[in-house]
């Protein structure tokens, strides 16, 4: 069972790990909290005013095919296509879509083993490149936690982290 939310009754739709949300109602916003090595991927069609957000944990579903079958939204390679397809089904058009990305932080040391954030972002770049989709803005890497917010009316994406000023992507 996938954790997909389409416009709920709340003004603010919260996306957890391994979940995505899609919305086409302008008084709403989609938010995902506390991205560590996870990636928050926001897509938005400014013409159709359709937006979506996905919160993925790991880069590659082939690591755990059984789990991927249960929840493909946990992985970059199986989650991202579902995010785009869900947006298309709500009227979004590929050529219009603006992609913004946050998260992908890493701890230090033992880099080849634990650099999950970096691997997540590489996996995302690969899948988007293969499908001729550009990332418009990103704030990835470093060692900070990030919360990502997408405003459906404006398409603006804001990022905040403890002790830092809010910024727009």
């Amino acid at each position: 069972m996938m954790n997909v939310v389409r416009c709920s009754s709340e003004n603010r739709i919260v996306v957890g790990i391994g979940e995505m949300a899609l919305c086409d109602e302008e008084n709403r916003e989609i938010v995902t909290f506390s991205l560590g090595s996870c990636l928050g991927i926001s897509i938005y069609d400014p013409v159709m005013k359709v937006g979506g957000m996905l919160h993925v944990l790991l880069p590659d579903s082939t690591i755990q095919k059984d789990r991927a079958a249960v929840n493909p939204l946990m992985f970059v390679d199986t989650g991202v296509p579902r995010l785009f397809r869900a947006a298309y089904s709500m009227g979004a058009v590929k050529e219009n879509i603006i992609v913004k990305v946050a998260g992908g932080a890493d701890m230090r040391g033992a880099r080849n083993i634990f650099n999950i954030g970096e691997r997540n972002f590489q996996s995302l770049q690969n899948i988007l490149r293969r499908n001729n989709v550009n990332i418009h803005k990103q704030e990835v890497g470093g060692s900070i936690s990030r919360t990502m917010n997408l405003n459906i009316a404006t398409g603006k994406v804001s990022i905040n982290s403890p002790g830092m000023q809010n910024r727009f992507l």
Binding site: S34, G36, M107, R108, F114, P162
Partner: peptide
């Protein structure tokens, strides 16, 4: 490290530690 990586670290220093 697993808690930090999965976003349950929190604060200024959320992921500013080394993995040994």
């Amino acid at each position: 490290a697993a808690a930090h990586i999965s976003g349950h670290g929190y604060g200024f220093s959320a992921m500013a530690s080394h993995i040994d």
